[in-house]
Amino acid sequence: MTFLDFEKVVSFYRRASGFGYAPFFSPAFERSEGVSDGDDFFLDRRGNLYRVRSDFTKTVLTHRKKRSSTSKLKVWYADFVYRYFGEEMVAEYQLGLENIPRESFNDTLEVLEIITESTLEMFAGPLIVEIGHTKVYEDLLRSVPKDLHEKVLNLIDTKNLAEIEFLSRIKGIDLSRIEKIIKDSIYRRSPDNLEEMNLPSPVKEELLAVSSFLQQRFPNISVEVDLTLARTVEEYSGVIFTVYDISSSKLVAAGGEYSINGEKGVGGSIFLEGKTC
């Protein structure tokens, strides 16, 4: 994680503001009436229960729901989220965007452009932008028994080609298309190979459009296709992306299209300074 540079934070929000994104501010701890799965909580000395902010997307959506709004919401944020890495809670400073609802493919390209341009400014590079698409699996799993879906998806997520081949043999099912998706995501990551990949037409068209946009807009970055990215976060639903800084061998940004509680949006975050709490 890079150290916080205030001038670059200012540059980010100016860039986002130029695309019509408004600032979004929220407290890191919000009062709560009860404990729910997936959230971290603490009690203050007076016995009040607080939920710790671990994800900005959910915070923005909660804010939107409280306002009962259905209008377009475009916001940028710059603040800490609090997450566990192993046994330790870490405060990670993030810069990010949320565009809700996602109304067109241009919304996705807009978020991708702002995140990529800002990441280029903040990190030494060179950068790799990996792109994927969650809807690949809707087609792949049709011939797989439902009781094996979770196991197969976990094997795809870890690119475990050997276990996929073993499962295919012992269960007597054809997993050759899934094997090829994993092999392509390991050995044939160039967007030039997309045309030959056995993917649903809408998925292929969107990935080709994203790769073409990135290559034309940012000729100094490398664009790679990794269709196993679709399993990184369950709420993603559509085009997704990650950005790696080769010089530090670190994931420095991520985002994509999502659907949470019926609300469709697109967003992205840049990961900056992190400190153990």
Rank of each mutant, 00 (worst) to 15 (best):
S118A: 03
F25I: 09
T59M: 03
V52E: 13
A28E: 10
H63E: 10
E30I: 03
T62Y: 10
R102F: 04
D107P: 10
A91Y: 08
A78D: 08
D107G: 03
V81Y: 06
V90R: 09
V60A: 00
H63S: 10
F105W: 12
M89A: 07
K65H: 02
V60Y: 00
K72G: 06
S26N: 03
R102W: 06
A91V: 15
F29T: 01
K74Y: 10
L112F: 09
F80L: 14
S118I: 01
T108V: 09
V35K: 12
S26R: 01
E92F: 13
V35A: 09
D39N: 12
F105A: 06
E113H: 13
K74A: 06
A22H: 13
L43S: 00
Y93V: 14
S32P: 12
A91M: 15
T59I: 01
S118T: 11
V60D: 02
L73E: 02
L49S: 02
V81G: 08
S104W: 11
R46I: 00
K66A: 04
A91F: 11
V81I: 11
G38E: 07
D39V: 04
E117P: 11
D107I: 07
E117H: 09
E30L: 07
Y77N: 10
N106H: 15
N106P: 02
R53M: 11
G38N: 14
R67Q: 14
V81S: 04
D40M: 08
S26F: 01
D37Y: 13
V90F: 09
V75R: 04
I115M: 09
L43Y: 11
S36D: 15
T108M: 05
R51H: 07
Y84C: 04
V52C: 10
P23N: 12
S69M: 08
T57A: 13
R83D: 14
F42W: 02
S32N: 05
V60T: 00
Q94W: 08
F80G: 15
I115P: 02
K58G: 08
K72Y: 01
T59V: 06
S68A: 05
Y93D: 13
N99L: 11
G47W: 00
T59W: 03
K66S: 06
L43F: 08
L112Q: 07
V60F: 00
R64P: 04
T59C: 06
S26A: 13
L109M: 11
E33T: 12
F80H: 15
E30R: 04
E88A: 14
H63Y: 10
S71L: 13
R45W: 00
I114L: 13
E88K: 14
